[in-house]
């Protein structure tokens, strides 16, 4: 069992000794039990830190944001950041290290194990207990989730309430960390991706229809992009204007900027946006599943990333984020890479 008191102790020590400029962790949000990300800067605030099955967010996003924020400062605070990471989040750290976006000494990783459970899918839980007041959600035994609802304890088996990504996860503890909390329990994934299997079994027209239905709902709110720690580009192909514009950028340079994708949420544009995003995340996506969780239109975005995850493994024996020293998927090749598709 992960003891939250131990996480707090470590966070307090780091802050008191001035080793870190802050601790990025989970705190109880304004809407009852649901945890939200927060930056703790003062030792007296560490008691706000929580660890429970509602800690869904991938906090590595805030490491990326802090990095960008510090780059804008005239006198950046060079002390490292402490950040609470789950298994999937820690692999995101590895990808950032691999890509040299951050250096190892910039972060102190408080690794937490999901043990043999994972995080709760709010939508699934609310479908089971609609409109009831949930007072607390904690880990039970054997990966079960315990929710206290109107004073009453209810135990849910993992497959009923855990997020799909957790049910499909095979690496439920951090692969890189400085401090570790909990136990490393290797758990068997139920299926690495039943969703991808389902689509692969469809005929071509069915797949097209499936994706047309899903992607036609896309509002282009870009929540999937905004929540992704891997989407750290300063300039995205879908942005109508360029962030790379500086006061010294000439009018000619601006005029030459290519508008790759229209801003309108037309089906064709939605397709191109999501495909570009998927391919850009190939070999980088650690399947933290945040893109799918945040989508207000319930578009199964993970199915795109999972497909490429599967192919990267099948074709190149590559898994994202396992080793920060190994070359990334697209920055290397093998002589023996498959080329039977090339004429």
């Amino acid at each position: 069992m992960v003891e939250v008191e131990k996480i707090r102790e470590e966070a307090r020590r780091l802050l008191q000794e001035g080793q870190v400029r802050g601790v990025i962790g989970y705190v109880r949000g304004p809407q009852g039990v649901w945890a939200v990300p927060a930056m703790i800067r003062n030792p007296e605030d560490v008691d706000r830190l929580v660890w429970n099955p509602t800690c869904v967010h991938n906090l590595v996003l805030f490491v990326v944001e802090e990095k960008k924020e510090q780059a804008r400062q005239k006198e950046p605070d060079k002390r490292p950041l402490a950040v609470v990471v789950k298994g999937c989040d820690s692999r995101a750290i590895n990808v950032l290290l691999q890509e040299k976006f951050i250096e190892r000494e910039e972060v102190i990783l408080l690794g937490v194990s999901c043990e043999n459970s994972g995080v709760v899918d709010k939508k699934k839980l609310l479908n089971l207990v609609p409109s009831q007041k949930i007072e607390e959600i904690v880990y039970g035994n054997n990966g079960h989730i315990v929710a206290v609802i109107d004073g009453e304890r209810r135990v849910f088996p993992p497959e009923e309430v855990l997020a799909d990504r957790c049910l499909e996860c095979q690496a439920n503890f951090p692969v890189v960390y400085d401090h570790f909390f909990g136990e490393k329990i290797k758990k068997e994934a139920i299926n690495t991706s039943p969703g991808v299997d389902k689509i692969e079994k469809m005929r071509l027209e069915e797949r097209r229809r499936f994706w047309e239905e899903e992607l036609s709902r896309c509002l282009r709110c870009y929540a999937c992009r905004s929540v992704c720690p891997m989407c750290y580009c300063t300039e995205c192909v879908v942005d109508p204007i360029s962030f790379a514009v500086e006061p010294t950028t000439t009018a000619e340079e601006k005029a030459k900027k290519i508008k790759w994708i229209e801003k309108s949420p037309l089906l064709s544009e939605n397709f191109v946006y999501h495909l570009v995003r998927a391919i850009h995340l190939a070999g980088r996506c650690v399947d933290c599943g945040e893109c799918e969780r945040v989508c207000p239109e319930d578009i199964p975005i993970r199915l795109l990333n999972k497909k490429l995850e599967r192919e990267a493994w099948r074709l190149f024996n590559y898994v994202a984020g396992m080793d920060s020293q190994a070359p990334s998927l697209f920055s290397t090749f093998k002589e023996t890479d498959p080329e039977d598709f090339i004429r």
Binding site: R220, Y222, S226, V227, S264, V294, P296
Partner: peptide, 25 residues
């Protein structure tokens, strides 16, 4: 706003938010 993601959910789903962009296609 520390935890804000900079996404458009709050405004795109708002019944009163009405800001728009005009663009040539």
């Amino acid at each position: 706003s520390y935890r804000c993601l900079k996404c458009g959910i709050c405004t795109y789903l708002c019944p009163t938010c009405h800001c728009f962009d005009i663009t040539d296609e």
